[in-house]
Design a protein around this nucleic acid. Structure first.
Length: 255
DNA sequence: ACCATTTGACCTAT
DNA sequence: ATAGGTCAAATGGT
């Protein structure tokens, strides 16, 4: 349907705008370029706003209406985190430094790339229920949408704060593991890394020590961005998109 | 031999 | 009926 195409295009636009923004940020580009980039971002913003508010329910976007309004969704409340990772390198597998085991892959309707399913390696040995899904963003093979759900109960916290020293340990993002306050909540976040040299890494954390997010090394540029095909809140996306200085932005919703 | 990945089948929700 | 998610046998690498 055309809504799908619209959403896809918007996602592409946002992705490209962010990519551009990162480029502009990383290399001290001329002021003109920055300005242009800002204008572009604003334009994309307006388009997204129009699309989202016109009653045009953008597929895959949660326009306020709880898609899973049934009690089933309530009972199945799980933590869920979305991360968008941009790899400027290429299609190298996302490596967040944590032990995941791939257990499936599916072609997703309307998506050019299949979705891969991973679970924690220690699922059986430690009963860790954490899983993640990785899918290439439509239109931009360098963008990966990574969705984590479930709490890591395994103490893979052996994996230290990898963000601090990327070359030693891949970065890991914090999660609310062991944080009871967050267990009933859904956390969406986009994380965007753009670094020409570093290998693509999804900064997830298998078993983060706290619910806070780690500081990111300068070599990574993070920007909030479009949650493509998932129930991202549009306004939140915009806020994040319009605040590139916020390296991180997370929102919490209940399913 | 062990472990991870691949991939078609199967299950479940819509 | 269809799509998304998971299982598990087959396969390959170390």
């Amino acid at each position: 349907m055309e809504d799908m195409a619209l959403a896809s295009e918007l996602d592409r636009l946002q992705a490209m705008a962010r990519e551009l923004g990162a480029q502009v940020d990383n290399n001290d580009a001329p002021a003109a370029a920055r300005e242009l980039c800002g204008a572009l971002a604003a334009s994309v913003d307006r388009v997204v706003r129009l699309a989202g508010s016109n009653g045009n329910a953008v597929p895959g976007k949660n326009n306020g209406q709880p898609r899973n309004s049934s009690r089933k969704a309530a009972t199945a409340a799980k933590t869920r985190r979305q991360v968008r990772v941009a790899s400027v390198q290429d299609t190298a597998p996302l490596d967040d430094g944590l032990s995941w085991r791939k257990y499936g892959q599916k072609d997703i309707l309307g998506a050019p790339y299949p979705r891969a399913y991973f679970r924690c390696t220690h699922r059986h040995t430690r009963g860790c229920q954490a899983t993640k899904q990785v899918q290439r963003a439509a239109g931009d093979p360098l963008l990966f949408d990574v969705v984590y759900h479930g709490d890591h109960t395994c103490s893979q916290a052996d994996a230290p704060l990898r963000l601090i020293s990327p070359e030693q340990q891949p970065p890991a993002s914090g999660q609310e593991q062991g944080s009871p306050a967050a267990t009933q909540e859904e956390m969406h976040m986009q994380l965007w890394a753009a670094e020409p040299v570093t290998p693509p890494m999804a900064m997830d954390g298998c078993c983060p020590p706290t619910s806070s997010w780690y500081q990111l090394p300068g070599s990574y540029g993070y920007a909030a961005g479009a949650g493509l095909g998932t129930d991202m809140d549009f306004e939140a996306q915009l806020d994040e998109f319009l605040n590139p200085t916020k390296f991180f932005q997370s929102e919490i919703q209940t399913l």
